[in-house]
Every structure is written in structure tokens, then in C-alpha cells.
Design a protein around this nucleic acid. Structure first.
Lengths: 351, 351
DNA sequence: TGAACGTACTGAAGCGCTTCAGTCACACTC
DNA sequence: GAGTGTGACTGAAGCGCTTCAGTACGTTCA
């Protein structure tokens, strides 16, 4: 079947009997033509099924694509199972959407970040990177393309905007809290140190060379307070299930820890369950702290003591930075958001 | 500061001393030139910082953008807190990424779907819609643009591919299971019937006119078996917290239900917690069934009896359909994936 | 009354790339 | 030595739009 060609600006222009420039103005610069003519153009366009200027052609002509790329170091399901990611992404998405920009997802491959080819071929004029390992090839691909970038929770990169929280300080606060409650036997539950999906106790060597900034800092914050000899279990991702397994392992060591320091709330929720699994109670037998303060932390059983970081704001600020770079602004000073300890009922003095 | 213009195909062409067409071929049709020349072109390109053909210009010339749009009826945080969404999205993303396509996110506004302008301006050449209300304006915007579309769990639309599961049948299976265990007093926990974020008991009127196909069918499946008089609580989203609140309300009615039918696993997890909150036990005092069979269902306490739907495959099939449409294929017959009841330990005979 | 100004619209030059019909030189055949 | 390929490369026409310098035609004002 001979499908009719899609209408273009030209189609509309000759249907109305004006020049192409005028039709373009009808869409983009209403002040450039009389209201009556504009009305007539829009009506004609609708009647012949013209859906408005083609986004791609417009992007080529204007030299920006109204899209912000989003690079993620993990598979999407893994990433989103962590509310910390989805809330940030939501903040980001609503910010850019409010300014008529789309979000182009570049999901991570197996290597800790999108493939460089994916980056090279994606239409975006600024990209925000979240949770990539330090030297991800995708980061380099962005640089080669000359796209401005904002990184979240990532090491500093030349010419790049950045938003982050004080993971190290937050973790220290949590650990100090526990120590001041009298605890001396700790266990630490962390998520990936390296992009290789490993679960298990962590050796000193693996610990030192972690390529994920956030993991590294939270862990360092904990260990800075509780000392380096503490058992650390690494989970391949931030999920309840993995946390439950890890916490079970930690609680099976002798002497049994009386306090568990978790790198995220999701991991901590798993730990809560693990304590129950062993017929122990939180906080009577073991205290648990999380990190993030996701909404569910307030309603867990018991409500979770955790380090609050402003997740939505993180996404929003990243979005605003991206928009500012898009408008030609220079990357500003790194934005550092405050964290705070939220004491609830999963921690108690050592009895 | 005078920033140097970004190199283009032309820049490379004249640097090497060949025509622009040849440089283009070096990237897209290696068989059209000698290996030696290609090598030389690629080297020169790298040395002058050319990152490869501009994606936008290429899209305009080829008339496809290598992007699949993704429309979602909810805010991203709401959507991703439901693993059922993130797993589907992950399946979709890895399918299209494997074929060098990006995913363009068009997040829902408040009206149950992306704004039509968002749709009109997004560069994508096929879109997949998930979890939109029946007559979302975004659906119409896609039609006007003439883009092919695949819908997941959505009513049939002319000229549109579709993948879905038998929500009605699945829900019936779960309800029949409960009835055959002897239960007669039920409570139903559902998620949004309308795009207005409401929580509370559902009136008959609100129930009949639901605009979300999935909600409608699961609910209808439950009620088909347990009868129309059963109390139904609507949650604004599919999260543990909302489920917990709703289940608490349901369990406070007299006579107290002995079985809770939940529209999703997340809701069911909340119900599990609610039962504990009231110092009751699952399944001794109350049986609970979920829907989806997300990974966590196997590990909940107790493990959840639920209706399994193949989430990853749903995303994968949707991705494949999208790719096929992109290749010019006609929309095929709707794909209907099988569901099955997974009996675990959250249901038991009425004692 | 004529210079100055505004408003409404148009022509044409790109934006950076793909693609297809050639052209050209060279080898191969009978 | 004319005919037939064939492999390697090029010229030029678009893809659908934006934009900017201009034209044409009133209005205004000194």
C-alpha cells in the first residue's frame, strides 16, 4: 500500500499559501506574525495531520537536542530496586521535564557503565552520570564528544559539575552513634566495591582499591570509627535479599557483632530480617543502622536509625546544573548537600 | 574565549584529502573502501578529536533516530518502587540497547501520562507505553505523530502491537485457591483505579469506571470469584507502606477477613507486615496472596503465595516488538504471556 | 511631505550527515 | 584490442527545520 508521505513544514506552508519561515514562526515565535494568520496556520496543520516540527530536524538546525542523557553504572533492575536511585532519578526527571527536556537512558552494560558506542550515538546535549565506577569508558566517551556533564556522587573530573553528599562524614556519624551506645563488636554490610557482582566477606586488598566513590567513602567512614579489623560483607547490589544473606553471615561469626553498619537502607532492611531469622531482636540483641533514609525507613519494624541524605534534592540539583550547562554556563562549584543522623528505634545501648 | 568549532565529517575529509562520502563510509560501510584508507581516516579523526558522525544529523539523514520512547503513567519514583515496573523496563532496555538503541524516558505528569508536548518533541521512532490510563492524551499524541507503538498491559488500540498477561485469569486462580482452602471472608487490596492518587475504601461507582486496564482486570478476577460485596481498599500506588496501611484498615473491619487478595506483591508485603502489626500470624490467622511473583516473594516471611507473571520476558518481548516495528514490520498479533499460581506459605486452609 | 520607524512576512543559506548514481582506472577475457 | 567487469571513490541532492538579513507597506511625527 502506498502510504502517503508525512506532512512537513513545506506541506503546511503551501497549503496555507505562506512561506516556510512563517509556519516555523507560528510554532516558535508567535510574536513574529499576526494572531489571525497563526491561527489559520495551526488549524490547517491540524487538518492535514501535521504534528508539529520534526524534533530531529529542529535539533539539527538549532544545534541542541533538548535531551539530557543519563548514564548508570548498573542494570536498570538492579539500580531501581534501590529507592535511592529511583528517587534521585525522579528528581532529575521532573526538573528537566519541566523545562521540556527528555531523559535519555543509557543503561550500563556489564562493564560498569554504558558502552562507549552507546554514548557516541545518543542524542543528548548534556549528560548526567550516576554511580559509575571511577574510570568508566563512558566517561571518556562523553569527554571526546565534548558534551558538558554533571556527575552525582563521583570523583571530580575536569570541567564537570558535581553534586554529592558527605558520605564519609555521614558514615562516621552513624558509627560514632553506635560506639557511644557502648557497642564494640561491629559488622559492616556494604554494596559493590568493584563492578564484578561479588558477594562475600571482603579481603583487605579488595577493600582498598574500590572504584566506586560512594561505597569507598561510606565504608571508610565506618571503618574510621570502628577500626580496620571489623568483618565486612560485600553485596553485589543494594537489595533486601542480598542484605539479609550478608547479615546472616555477619551474625554467624564469633563473637557475634552487636551492631551492624549498613551502606544503605535496603541492605539494613535485609539485616533486620536476618536478625529475626536468627530469633534475635532489634535493637535488644543487635543494633542496625542504614544509610539514605528512604521513605520506608520510617515505617520498618523497628523504624530504622539511618543517615539521611536529601535524595530528591540531589536529583533536582543535578537537573538544574545540567540545565545551566545547557544554557552555556560554566560548571559551578561542586554542590555538597548535608547529611544528618536520624535516630529511630533500630539502635539501642548495649545491655 | 574563542572556542574552536567542533570537527565535522568535512573537517576530517579535507584533513585526509578524501570526499565526505568516503569518510561517512568509513564509519557506516567499511566494505565500500579499502581497509588502509579506512584506517587512515579513523586515525586522523581520532587525532583531531572527531567523535564520530553527529547522531542528530545522522538521524535526520537516515530518517530514524535509533531511540525508543518509553511512556509511563506515573512519576518515576512511584513507578520504580514497584519492582514489577523496573524489571519490565530492564528487560526492555537490554533488548533495545543490544540493538544500539537508546531508551528515551517520557515521565508521566500529574494527568496520568506524559504531556502531549513532551511526546511531540521527543526524538524517537517507536514508543512503548506502559501503565497509562486508557485514554491518556499521550497516546493520541503518538498517533498524531504517526509513530508505531507497542503497549504493555493496555487496551487494544488500532495499529498497535501489544504484550500483556492474563490478569483476569490469574486473579481468578488466586481467589479460587483461597476459596478452595475454605475461606469465605475476604478483603481486597488494589492499586490505583483512577489517576488521582487516592487511598481508601472503594465505592461501587469508582470501582466500575476504572481507567487502568491492569487494575480493572485483577480486581474483576478477584471479585468474580469472591463476589461483589467484598471490601476493597485502593492504594495510590504499589508500595509496601500503602499496602500496610490498607491491610490494616481491611483487617479492622468486622467480621475480620481471613484472606487478603492483593493486586501486587508489594502490596502483599505490606499486608504481611500489617498482620504482624495486629499481633496476628500469616497464614494461621490470615492468608495473603500477591500478584507478580517478584524475586522477593520467595524470601518474604512467610514466602508469598502469588500469581507469577514473566516480567523480564514482558519487557523483552515489548522490546522485540518495537524493534520489529522499527524495521518496518506490521504490528503482529497481541502477545499474551501465561501466568501461573505459585503456592508458597502465606496461604493455608481456614482452621 | 518626507524621513524614520514598525509590523508582517519572505528568500535563501545553512545545520552535519547519508546515499545513489556515476566516474575512473585497472584487470580480465575471448 | 574491443568488450566487460569490478573495486574504489566522488558529486550532489536531499533530510526538515531555523534564522537572519531583507523587502514591502503602512504609520507616525516634525
Amino acid at each position: 500500500m502506498e502510504r502517503p508521505r508525512k506532512p512537513t513544514l513545506d506541506t503546511v506552508a503551501s497549503a496555507v499559501g505562506v512561506s516556510r519561515a512563517t509556519v516555523s514562526n507560528a510554532y516558535n515565535r508567535p510574536d513574529q506574525l499576526s494572531a489571525a494568520l497563526r491561527e489559520r496556520i495551526l488549524e490547517t496543520a491540524a487538518s492535514i495531520g501535521y504534528a508539529g516540527p520534526d524534533p530531529v530536524a529542529r535539533s539539527l538546525a538549532t544545534r541542541h537536542s533538548a535531551a539530557v542523557g543519563f548514564m548508570l553504572g548498573q542494570h536498570l533492575s538492579a539500580a531501581f530496586s534501590d529507592p535511592a536511585v529511583s528517587i534521585v532519578l525522579d528528581g532529575l526527571a521532573s526538573t528537566v521535564d519541566g523545562h521540556d527536556h527528555c531523559l535519555v537512558l543509557m543503561p550500563g552494560g556489564t562493564e560498569g557503565g554504558p558502552r562507549p558506542e552507546t554514548v557516541a550515538r545518543a542524542a543528548a546535549d548534556v549528560v548526567v552520570a550516576y554511580s559509575l565506577p571511577d574510570h568508566a569508558p563512558a566517561l571518556d566517551a562523553v569527554r571526546v564528544r565534548g558534551l558538558p556533564m554533571v556527575v552525582i556522587d563521583q570523583p571530580v573530573l575536569p570541567d564537570t559539575a558535581r553534586v554529592e553528599v558527605d558520605d564519609f562524614g555521614g558514615a562516621r556519624m552513624a558509627a560514632i552513634h553506635l560506639r557511644s551506645l557502648g557497642h564494640t563488636r561491629f559488622g559492616v554490610l556494604t554494596f559493590s566495591l568493584h563492578p564484578d557482582d561479588r558477594n562475600g566477606f571482603v579481603s583487605a586488598g579488595r577493600l582498598s582499591g574500590s572504584t566506586f566513590r560512594v561505597t569507598r567513602d561510606r565504608l571508610a567512614g565506618y571503618l574510621d570509627v570502628v577500626g580496620p579489623g571489623v568483618p565486612v560483607w560485600e553485596c553485589a547490589g543494594s537489595s533486601r535479599e542480598l542484605g539479609r544473606t550478608g547479615a546472616r553471615a555477619l551474625l554467624s561469626s564469633t563473637p557475634r557483632p552487636t551492631a551492624l553498619l549498613c551502606a544503605s537502607d535496603e541492605l539494613a532492611f535485609g539485616a533486620l530480617q536476618a536478625v529475626r531469622d536468627l530469633s534475635l531482636a532489634v535493637p535488644r540483641d543487635v543494633s542496625v543502622v542504614g544509610f539514605d533514609d528512604v521513605p520506608a525507613a520510617e515505617h520498618s519494624d523497628p523504624p530504622l536509625t539511618t543517615v539521611r541524605q536529601p535524595l530528591t534534592e540531589k536529583g533536582r540539583r543535578a537537573g538544574e546544573s545540567a540545565l545551566r550547562l545547557l544554557a552555556g554556563g560554566r560548571p559551578e562549584e561542586p554542590i555538597r548537600l548535608a547529611v544528618s543522623l536520624v535516630e529511630r528505634h533500630s539502635t539501642a545501648p548495649l545491655t
